[in-house]
């Protein structure tokens, strides 16, 4: 077993260039270690990503005003970041609901995405917020770029966002349905809304019909039933034959109402 611990970006690039055929990245390990439990490693190399400072930075990019979140930032770190809380609220809300305190202190946003679980909580948020992935050599996520709060798409409005999820229980739970909503408040009305449904099916997806319900409405006056109804239809269409469909179609009303309430309560 080769265990590689790059401590700089260059060392990471060298490690990637020389990597074994069967290798795995290790960051928070909150997904790989439970999977490996009780079994031997099935890889020849582990590349640790937790000692590369560039992967742990979080902050505004030099020119664009876009916001960078390093792949190895922990959920706790993302949830506590004042800029994320203010401008990318959905992501902060998602990160503060992931697992337990211990998992949030260890699990990383990059790992959450790279693990490829349909239930990954950060994914719908990153999609709704228009995040872009920056890659290292096309195999390793360096981090995520979120459009700056003053980005052209926001225009003269204010970007607001919220996240809600439904799991098997109310706490320390894996999502069965997650919802991320991002909108631009312009003249007191929602515009340019994006709604992403996560966990319900194999991949998160945009639900334009639900977004259309918000557009033009004032916070607090959204037709909540129509919003939930649009989501229910979308879920039914995405997993028509799954035994869990009837429940998810019906239960989406819970997170749908929750996410609207959180969006309406948005405060700068």
């Amino acid at each position: 077993m080769i265990f590689t611990v790059p401590k700089t970006l260059e060392e990471l690039q060298t490690a990637l260039a020389n990597r074994s055929e069967r290798f795995v990245f290790a960051a928070g390990c909150t997904d790989i270690l439970p999977k490996k439990l009780g079994k031997p490693w099935e890889v020849d190399e582990i590349i640790d990503l937790t000692h590369v400072p560039e992967l742990q930075t979080i902050g505004t990019g030099p020119q664009t005003g876009d916001y960078f979140i390093g792949a190895c930032c922990t959920h706790a770190q993302v949830a506590a970041d004042p800029e994320v809380r203010r401008h990318y609220t959905a992501l902060a809300q998602a990160c503060e609901q992931i697992g337990s305190v211990q998992i949030r202190n260890r699990g990383t946003i990059g790992g959450n995405v790279a693990n490829g679980s349909p239930a990954a909580d950060t994914l719908p948020c990153l999609m709704a917020l228009g995040a872009e992935i920056e890659w290292i050599d096309g195999v390793c996520i360096k981090g995520f770029w979120l459009p700056g709060a003053q980005a052209p798409s926001a225009g003269s409005g204010t970007v607001v966002s919220a996240f809600a999820k439904l799991g098997d229980r109310d706490i320390v739970t894996i999502a069965r349905i997650s919802l991320a909503v991002r909108s631009v408040l312009r003249g007191g009305r929602y515009t340019n809304t994006a709604v992403v449904v996560g966990a319900a099916s194999l991949q998160p997806f945009f639900c334009d019909e639900a977004a259309a319900v918000l557009d033009g409405s004032q916070p607090g006056e959204v037709d909540r039933e129509a919003f939930a109804g649009a989501l229910a239809k979308a879920i039914e269409a995405s997993i028509p034959n799954r035994p869990t469909m009837p429940y998810k179609r019906s239960a989406v009303r819970g997170p749908a109402f929750d996410v609207l309430e959180r969006l309406a309560n948005f405060e700068h």
Binding site: F3, V5, A26, G28, C29, T30, L33, I46, D48, T50, H51, V101, Q102, I103, N105, R106
Partner: peptide
């Protein structure tokens, strides 16, 4: 607080 079962020695 972290889980000691979720950390690798090499880290």
């Amino acid at each position: 607080p972290v889980h000691a079962c979720m950390v690798l020695a090499g880290q």
